[in-house]
Write a protein that binds this DNA or RNA. Structure first.
Lengths: 351, 351
DNA sequence: CTGAAAGCGCTTACAG
DNA sequence: CTGAAAGCGCTTACAG
């Protein structure tokens, strides 16, 4: 409306400087709130910024400063509620410190993870947070792991109390409901050919936790009661494995599912086979499936404070970046506790 | 192990050029596969790239080229399954064309959306795709809308067949199950104070669709049968509104929920009040809640091909960017059809 | 086919 | 308090 500029070009710092009648250096200093700028100059610069609708070019700034204020976030799949919530927690924390977040999906494939890391490096991210699927390699910036943690934990790691969590589930089945034939269906726990050793740490911990809890309870654990899914935790694989469990001579009376997608697969199989939960078989779940309370039946599971996991990972990274305070300097794996949410699938007469 | 370099500094194009014994210009041309490079030079450059583990700095490249190959993606909340899936569809399509995606959550707040757009502009994204919550403003790059579409549709828009979709649901309730007292609980359809006119277009379309379908069926529609939620589609709000519906003198025998989170809120209220679905009341849902089939009861809903919606939006943007082929050049709202998925919550004896 | 040079938009010692 | 100058790492006309 007012003056029509010859070009639609976005205003640059030079435009602002010209409009304010100062040098680019002074304009820059005024904008960044740095010292050594006269109040008068500062005011003219701000006025020009306002008038021109100037917004500094992040690219140029990052290139010059050597820091992008960007953090890469690698997850297997944002469409999985757990990762989506953890992501939001991390994002919120990071944005509060002026960082922004680049999200990449790895689809639980090590090579896609490696490719994503390369991309992130090309974009000069200042750090990464990742739920690794085994494709991690150092890209020269601090890395914080969450959910699944490799042997070398980099700048920090946040994981769940996997063993204790499974223990809570088993103990409940045994102590409250008197189950003796309990099967386990969890994430892979062994090293797959061609994979990095670290990948299945949390799967291993959960399985160890299961064995330990069964041992403590003095219960027999036939090998056919222990099943592990594919690396992608595909629900249809869980459905197939559950069907196998049901076909056993002495079928289990309870199933502990070691991850939320697996739980849904288990329920799917049970629905298909018209096996009633919890009447015919009890089901408990390591993670909370989305809307666990509205499922048929409501699923007893472990609440793992997804958001908090993301927040905490972000805080550790901020600490590593020298910004925030990670709360701790020792680089041990930090464990987030789990809480048992009793619903109906275990046999309790709740909700 | 081999040679230890003095600095841990990342190799730059200059390092590659030096190592290959050519100028930076030639190295650059060799890398980008451009013409006018001798095979010998090309080979030496590639060898140097390999040896040094060089990866071009995207920041510098983007600054120089004036294009970042980055696309901003704005959604209300990635933790909502629909958006997560649409995001993945868009991301896949864009990455196949060499773009990468910056995701931002707006929490359905217009001001957060505006702030996110400013950030995106600062990062010089080449385009944006957004499910707007009313905070859109032009940032000088092509914009494609999906899900919710403003009056000025920018470079393109993909939306659902809102009216037809609601029609499918109502028709099913009427034709198959003979319902006559059908209530509607959907997203806001009216302009809120201080909001951009465009925000609630899809809410309006769904409500219009509901009224139209009821009219076609010759059914009465008492005003108290029509409820709209808050702008954020909070499930607890839906729970409260459902409770009100149940308390009506002549309570409805069926509820059409106009969005997935609302559906979950409706079910929550029904569970709380021990109202049985579909025995006491039928429920149908516009969107598919996650694992609609495992809910109690499995929910009859509209499958809206979330991923495809994201893909299509991405294709339109690519077309606007002059890259891909959008399939169409006219800038009308593109509509994605919806399919009825019959399950048990409507009263059908399925699943 | 090749290289010297300019420049993308910013920031930051360095002199004044 | 201020500005001239160099430089972040790349690309691209332009001359040869």
């Amino acid at each position: 409306m007012a003056e029509q500029r010859p070009v639609q070009r976005r205003p640059t710092l030079a435009d602002v400087a010209a409009a304010a009648g100062v040098s680019r250096a002074t304009a820059s200093r005024a904008m960044s709130g740095g010292p050594n700028v006269s109040p008068a100059a500062r005011e003219r610069v701000w006025a020009a910024v306002e008038r021109l609708g100037f917004e500094p070019n992040h690219l140029a700034r990052s290139l010059r400063r050597g820091s992008t204020m960007a953090i890469g976030l690698l997850v297997p799949d944002v469409a999985i509620a757990f990762y989506a919530r953890a992501l939001k927690g991390a994002q919120e924390t990071l944005e509060r410190s002026g960082y922004h977040v680049l999200v990449m999906n790895t689809e639980r494939a090590a090579d896609r993870e490696a490719a994503a890391l390369r991309t992130l490096r090309a974009h000069q991210v200042d750090g990464v947070i990742l739920a690794t699927s085994g494709g991690y390699r150092d890209i020269g910036v601090p890395a914080v792991f969450f959910d699944n943690v490799p042997l070398d934990i980099g700048a920090g790691a946040v994981a769940l109390c996997n063993e204790e969590g499974i223990g809570l589930l088993v103990d409940h089945l045994v102590d409250v409901h008197g189950h003796e034939r309990i099967a386990y269906l969890g994430p892979p726990a062994a090293v797959m050919p061609g994979e990095v050793v670290s990948t299945h740490r949390s799967g291993r911990e959960r399985l160890d936790g299961f064995r330990a809890a069964m041992g403590r309870a003095g219960l027999a654990l036939p090998p056919e009661y222990v099943r592990t899914s594919d690396a992608r935790l595909t629900d249809t694989v869980a459905t197939a494995l559950t069907t196998e469990l049901l076909a056993l001579d002495r079928a289990p009376t309870a199933i502990v599912a070691g991850a939320d997608t697996l739980t849904l697969g288990v329920l799917e199989a049970l629905h298909e086979q018209r096996v009633r939960v919890p009447d015919d078989i009890a089901v408990v779940s390591f993670d909370e499936p989305t809307h666990a309370g509205l499922l048929d039946p409501p699923v007893t599971s472990l609440d793992r404070h997804d958001r908090q996991l993301g927040c905490r990972a972000a805080e550790l990274l901020l600490a590593a970046l020298g910004g925030g305070d990670g709360g701790t300097t020792e680089s041990a794996i930090e464990r987030v506790p789990l809480e048992l949410r009793v619903r109906r699938s275990c046999g309790c007469p709740v909700g």
